[in-house]
């Protein structure tokens, strides 16, 4: 299994000017995106509508076809919105990389197991849904060796990562607020992307 932070750091080191649309684990202030990426201005944390990061990333990928868009998704989140895999493959943006952090639990709600954690096959589902290229990694060495090929592949790309569960047990209202959240991202990301209203 891959450490959550190691995975995000590796992706961040390869991102260039890509946008990270992240949710849940990869968006948690204690071990996630806001604290460890190198370019917060291009981070787009999605909170407030669990499961929809993949759709936001799709919209952004369609709007910004010359820029790579990463969705850093969670298995519990994607289970809520499996249809988005077909929505993405059908629309087929070449610049979208959908990274699934599979920890087999609802990590930010206390670590309850997700349904089908030991039965479902994410790599198989992504292939069947029609992603142009699908990769799967369960250890950091293989991920380090394979990430360049995965990121260079024509999208939509699906990268399945088996990661260690890192459990958050604090109720939402008592957690340390993330410095960057969906509201700060919406306020400044368009300007960073060069969008003129």
């Amino acid at each position: 299994m891959i450490d959550n932070i190691d995975a995000v750091k590796l992706l961040d080191s390869k991102r260039g000017n890509a946008v990270f649309v992240a949710t849940m684990n990869a968006n948690n202030v204690h071990f996630g995106l806001p604290t460890i990426t190198s370019n917060e201005k291009l981070d787009f944390p999605i909170s407030g509508a669990m499961s929809k990061a993949s759709n936001v990333a799709l919209g952004l990928a369609l709007a910004q076809p010359d820029r790579k868009i990463f969705c850093l998704d969670g298995d519990g989140s994607l289970l809520m919105n499996l249809g988005s895999m077909v929505t993405i493959s059908n629309t087929a943006p070449k610049n979208l990389i959908h990274v699934l952090f599979n920890n087999k639990v609802y990590a930010v709600t206390g670590g309850q197991p997700i349904p089908g954690a030991e039965k479902s096959d994410w790599e198989g589902m992504a292939k069947s849904a029609g992603y142009a290229n699908v990769f799967s990694f369960d250890n950091l060495e293989d991920l380090t060796n394979g990430i360049d090929e995965a990121m260079a592949a024509v999208g939509p790309v699906f990268i399945h990562l088996v990661v260690k569960p890192e459990i958050e047990n604090t109720p939402v209202q008592f957690r340390t607020p993330a410095k960057r959240n969906v509201h700060t991202a919406i306020a400044d990301l368009p300007e960073t992307l060069g969008v003129k209203r």
Partner: peptide, 12 residues
């Protein structure tokens, strides 16, 4: 609504 949000932030 989520796809629309991404499109909107991206300038569409």
């Amino acid at each position: 609504m989520a796809v629309s949000a991404g499109l909107w932030v991206g300038g569409k």
